[in-house]
Design a binder for these strands. Structure first.
Lengths: 236, 236
DNA sequence: ACCAAAGGTGTACGTCGTACACCTTTGCGG
DNA sequence: CCGCAAAGGTGTACGACGTACACCTTTGGT
């Protein structure tokens, strides 16, 4: 009878449920709202209970990274290494875009988890399978930097000054004028989407385009060096 | 007489002294040791006294970033835009290397400070002066990403597993063996410095070389696109 | 001589991660 | 069926942290 008097027998926690709840909470409420206490609350458990499943908060974050890395598609069987790598990295990008906090957490990790190592190992393998030398591959990985993860850190994620959508348009125009005299080059760049006259202030940038632009520029560079048998003793 | 009974009349704090002390403390003890309390202690003052000079800790960090940005050399009068930009960015890199915490703090900023905007504006101006279109310059800035600041975030700043210098060499060899079977590509890459047989484990990478490799690959890519009159409607 | 402002103090609150001792449930070998 | 160890969950407590708020002290201008 003790079995069914209470609403639900509460299946015991485990590391996986903890990690997935943490990911869900970060997705919903933002990474800054994820504390051991809030996560415990979410799981109807007292904070200290979590420590039976993760050693500490750092390891919780490590685990969350591995959950996200697990969402990246396995290598596709493309003909050429360049497009295979391109696809894989764009898949990583999609995974990271689904979890906006993930890039910041990845950056903050101090040592790599097994999942991360697996992913890096496999990307390196794709370069090697394409015939690039270990040396060139090494430099290529460095050149990609965070782009292997599908993100580039924003110089400033939000906007300069106060939020762009507040205040009256008059004050906003004045602010733009100030900006234009103090930072003319920035304003020119930001305003210059080729010629679709969408709105006065050019709605920011097409992140996806920017990402692919840089990615392709780098991959093409690697290919060019590869074809001409470049080795790291030379400047190009 | 009250003037000289006490050891020193303690010149009053100001924003600049606070910022410079914060930079010095972060340099000496690491950014994680910088708290409002520790900084106040350093200045022989009670924590709340700092709030008369900086609004809160975020603004303190903003101010510290501007101090570092102020250390970047002004543009040199190079003949061509490419080497001018290259020199400037390498100067930024030197500034950031003097303050190992700075890149992490820059990444963490949520909106740009005036000093940061000045720097970006001036780098953009250098591209424009070289004749690149606003559009290509825009993409170039995105492609550079954190490299304009002279850093690329490390995939893993330290080493995998425990510190490399601890434990007996036997256990270390075993660990390397494990790594080699689980992550063969990573191990191959890390071990492959062309052929200077320095030591079995190839002392990591030459960061400066890796940085310049990627920087030059990108700058060369921009130049190539610029010469062929590329516009962002095309894939290259 | 006075007074406002600028600069510095002290106390207190709410949040965080987590150490440590304790209780409860569970599954297994006798 | 019993008992008992391990696994899982609890409660309390500590020492950080950033910072609100009320207060005192010094100082420069009239």
């Amino acid at each position: 009878m003790t079995q069914q008097t209470e609403p639900a027998r509460r299946t015991p926690l485990n590391r996986d449920r903890v990690l997935r709840a943490a990911v869900a909470l970060a997705d919903r409420a933002g990474i800054e709202a994820l504390s051991m206490r809030s996560l415990a609350h979410e799981l109807n458990v007292v904070p200290m209970a979590l420590y039976k499943h993760v050693a500490n908060k750092e390891q919780l974050l490590d685990g969350m990274v591995d959950v996200i890395v697990g969402e990246i598609d396995p290598p596709a069987g493309d003909a050429d290494w360049k497009s295979a790598i391109r696809r894989r990295i764009l898949s990583a990008r999609r995974a990271l875009l689904r979890h906006p906090w993930a890039s910041r957490v990845i950056e903050s990790r101090t040592s790599p988890t097994p999942g991360v190592l697996d992913y890096l190992n496999s990307i390196i393998g794709m370069f090697r399978a394409g015939g690039l030398s270990p040396d060139l591959t090494h430099h290529a990985m460095h050149a990609l930097g965070s782009r292997v993860w599908g993100f580039t850190q924003e110089l400033f994620p939000a906007s300069p000054g106060p939020a762009p959508a507040d205040a009256d348009p008059q004050a906003l125009a004045a602010l733009l004028g100030e900006m234009a005299t103090r930072y003319p080059h920035i304003v020119e760049i930001v305003l210059a989407r080729p010629h679709d006259g969408e709105s006065v202030v050019g709605q920011g940038c097409d992140d996806q385009f920017e990402f692919e632009f840089a990615l392709d520029l780098l991959l093409d560079g690697f290919e060019r060096l590869h074809r001409q048998g470049w080795t790291s003793a030379e400047r190009f």
